[in-house]
């Protein structure tokens, strides 16, 4: 199974960096997510997770370090988390770490909403960002 590596950028739109590793099960999304076509960007990531959880079936560490994501991205994140929830329900081992800027006072609430939506445990890890 191929890895997904996307180098993010902050130009006309904000493309997040993605690193999904099929060898060690580390999957990381970082940076900012504000895309011209959100669904098109996240579709291969969701498919990758479906394949990994269906065929490779090893533990997954899912790491989110997004300092900004728009509301259409928030829907795609929910889709990704739902794949992880299905995997966990079927005996898969899943750890989710969500790193967020301590200045972003609403992020904790956002993450909490994802936990309510999916029933997953998400580890909240605040960091301080120098601007």
């Amino acid at each position: 199974m191929e890895n997904i590596v996307i180098q993010g950028s902050h130009k006309d739109y904000f493309i997040p960096s993605v690193n999904f590793n099929a060898q060690n099960g580390m999957c990381e999304i970082s940076g900012e997510s504000f895309l011209e076509d959100t669904v098109e960007f996240y579709k291969p990531l969701i498919q990758w997770l479906e394949t990994y959880t269906g065929e490779v079936k090893k533990p997954i560490a899912f790491i989110i370090k997004l300092t900004y994501f728009n509301t259409s991205t928030s829907r795609s994140i929910l889709d990704l988390l739902n794949v992880l929830k299905d995997y966990e329900d079927n005996g898969g081992e899943v750890v989710i770490n969500w790193h967020y800027d301590e200045n972003d006072v609403d992020m904790e609430e956002d993450i909490e909403d994802y936990m309510i939506d999916t029933g997953l445990d998400i580890n909240l890890i605040p960091f301080s960002q120098k601007s």
């Binding site: 076509d37 959100t38 509301t71 259409s72 829907r75 795609s76 939506d117």
Partner: peptide, 13 residues
């Protein structure tokens, strides 16, 4: 957010 996305994944929230 649980409802299907609109065009380009946008909309509704």
């Amino acid at each position: 957010r649980k409802l299907p996305a609109g065009a380009k994944g946008g909309g509704n929230i």
